[in-house]
């Protein structure tokens, strides 16, 4: 397979005052793939994304988009939906999309065609003359999607795209992302909720504390970790789980637990213990979840989370 790199980040660093927001970060996003930028809040994802979008300047390192350094020109190749989303409330939907499309370099005629297409596609053709302030939250989220993709760029960047979306729009966005990928477009999105990524991403890059801790193909990364996680469904007293040695419990509810085996702990021994204490509905040995991979790579004590991104 001939892999073409669309976004290449090399030794990127950014410092705000005393805070080293991004330190020596490198990763590659290949054309036609969905790339996930993962990590807790405050890990440096948004800062990196802003530099890729040429919104803030680079302190050190380089970012190449289709082999060109970032510039106002590369900005036009990207459709960007920031985490902080918003639109002009008093402007009409049509005018607003026209303005944003023209800022991205489209001429009025092409912009009009694209706006019509997407409004029809989202069953919103009659919103053209409505002002954004009149729209419901869900409706304005749809307009926000259109604003991001209306100029038909090759690259799409979504920063925490699913936060604050209602379930319908969440599904819609997933659909759009997959559809764009199938058309050969490149998608990069960031999230702090790992489980979302598992379903969609081809490649990932794990961030912690301004640094990249792991990057590569998601399938391969998971495979490399091996099948060392037990999914356990049971009925009855689950307190025995707390007494297990050499394990880490990641996901737990009253009758479910995700148990990561450490130090070559034998899964059969755990099954045996479990049968003695509770009624077992399911016992499955699987690859670890991304969250588990993140924790075991970074080390539990080194995960730094900040509220302000």
């Amino acid at each position: 397979m001939n892999k073409k790199t669309t976004i290449e980040v090399q030794n990127l660093s950014k410092t705000f005052g005393q805070t080293k927001a991004v330190q020596n970060v490198s990763f590659k996003v290949e054309k036609g793939r969905i790339f996930g930028l993962l990590g807790p809040n405050g890990a440096g994802k948004t800062t990196t994304i802003r530099m890729i979008n040429y919104i803030i300047t680079i302190d050190e390192g380089t970012i190449l988009i289709n082999d060109q350094p970032v510039s106002p020109k590369t900005q036009k190749l990207i459709g960007y939906m920031p985490e902080e989303r918003g639109l002009y409330k008093k402007m009409k939907v049509g005018e607003q999309l026209m303005y944003l499309a023209q800022l991205k370099g489209l001429n009025a005629k092409d912009a009009e065609t694209n706006i019509r297409y997407w409004l029809n596609r989202f069953k919103a053709a009659d919103w053209h003359l409505k002002s954004v302030g009149e729209l419901s939250k869900g409706m304005s989220q749809k307009i926000q999607f259109i604003a991001t993709i209306v100029h038909d760029p090759d690259i799409y960047i979504f920063d925490e795209p699913f936060s604050g979306l209602d379930p319908i729009n969440s599904e819609l966005l997933k659909e759009i992302i997959i559809e764009l990928r199938d058309k050969g477009k490149t998608i990069l999105f960031s999230t702090h909720r790992m489980e979302q990524v598992e379903q969609m991403c081809d490649d990932i890059c794990l961030f912690n504390n301004g640094k990249v801790v792991l990057t590569g193909n998601l399938r391969k990364i998971k495979k490399d970790f091996g099948k060392n996680t037990i999914l356990l469904e049971y009925d009855g007293d689950g307190s025995f789980i707390d007494d297990l040695d050499d394990v880490r419990i990641n996901n737990r509810s009253t009758n479910f637990a995700e148990i990561r085996l450490l130090n070559d702990q034998d899964p059969q021994a755990i099954l045996k213990t479990a049968i003695e204490h509770a009624k077992i509905h399911k016992f499955e040995l699987v690859e670890p979840s991304l969250n588990e991979i993140f924790i075991s790579t970074v080390g539990e004590d080194n995960i730094k989370t900040e509220e302000a991104a």
Binding site: R50, N53, I55, Q75, I78, P82, R85, L100, K104, T148
Partner: peptide, 8 residues
């Protein structure tokens, strides 16, 4: 909306 605008 400022971040959308500054990306253009």
């Amino acid at each position: 909306i400022i971040e959308v605008i500054t990306s253009s």
